[in-house]
Amino acid sequence: MNNNHSYGFGWYLKETDKAITRYVDKTLKDQGLTRFHWQVMNRAYLDGVAIKENLYAKNYVSPSEMDNILDSFVQRNWIELRENPDHLETEIYLTKKGREEFETIAEIIKETGMRMFQVITQEEYEQTVNVLTRLMNHLNELSSS
């Protein structure tokens, strides 16, 4: 911890996240997709419906970039957007074609993840996630008190 050549903890987190984005974007380039396209697809697939306003990716892209991601899916006929005026939300559903394409993209992402994390063991991965989760929860507690 007293290494004079190290950067702060947050720097490592941000740089790692940027590196993940660059690598995932590179592996999805031939499909015309990005990491954030994948996040939207994955959420809609896992939940059956994704809520645009609740998407994790919105923390990383601007509202216009999010609209571009959704528009690209609509143009491909991979998603259907439905406005829910009762909840002031936009619901995102994968179409039949979108669900079929999801399987192909999910396989690419699975291989990408295996290559990304091949330099660490499963135990190291789990330990890192555990440490980050504890730190996040602790900081959220400190922020709310």
Rank of each mutant, 00 (worst) to 15 (best):
K97P: 10
R99W: 00
D86K: 15
E103S: 10
W11S: 01
E124Q: 15
Q127E: 14
M116T: 11
N54V: 03
K29R: 13
V74K: 07
R22H: 11
G10Q: 04
R99I: 09
L46M: 15
E141K: 09
I109V: 09
D47M: 13
N4L: 14
E89A: 09
L28V: 01
S62G: 07
A106E: 05
Y60H: 14
S6P: 00
Y125P: 00
S144I: 11
E107W: 07
L94E: 02
L33K: 00
E80G: 02
H5S: 08
E83M: 06
T133I: 09
S145D: 10
G32A: 07
G48H: 06
Y23L: 14
E91I: 03
N140R: 14
D47L: 13
K96F: 11
K52T: 04
H87G: 08
Q75Y: 04
R22F: 09
P63I: 02
L142I: 14
Q31T: 08
E101P: 05
E53C: 09
R76L: 10
M41C: 05
F102A: 08
T16S: 15
A106I: 03
E101W: 01
E101M: 13
Y45W: 13
N3Y: 05
T90K: 06
R35E: 14
K110W: 12
K58N: 15
K29F: 12
Q122T: 10
K97I: 13
R43Y: 03
N137G: 06
K26F: 14
G8R: 07
N77S: 10
T104P: 07
S6G: 05
P85C: 05
I108H: 00
Y125M: 03
I92T: 08
H5N: 12
T133S: 12
G10P: 04
Q39H: 10
R99F: 04
G8T: 00
A44S: 13
I109M: 13
N68T: 05
S62D: 10
L132P: 01
R43H: 06
G32E: 02
R43F: 03
P63Q: 01
R76S: 10
Q118P: 06
N77P: 03
V129N: 09
R35K: 15
A19D: 13
N68C: 09
F9T: 08
V61W: 04
P85L: 10
K110V: 09
M41Q: 02
S62R: 10
V40H: 00
F73W: 00
G113H: 03
H37Q: 00
L46H: 14
L28N: 07
E100A: 12
G32S: 07
D17P: 03
F36K: 00
T104S: 15
K18W: 05
N42A: 04
K110I: 07
V131P: 07
H138G: 14
S62F: 06
K58A: 15
W38G: 03
L13H: 03
I105H: 13
G8N: 04
V61L: 00
Q127F: 10
A50E: 04
F117P: 04
L142A: 11
T27V: 15
F102Y: 15
S62M: 04
I120M: 12
D86H: 15
F73I: 07
S6V: 05
G113K: 08
T34R: 01
T112W: 08
I105L: 08
W78Q: 01
F117T: 10
N42R: 10
R99L: 09
L81S: 12
I92R: 07
S145V: 13
L33F: 08
R134Q: 11
L132V: 02
M116Y: 01
D47G: 06
N84Y: 01
E124I: 06
Y56K: 11
N137F: 05
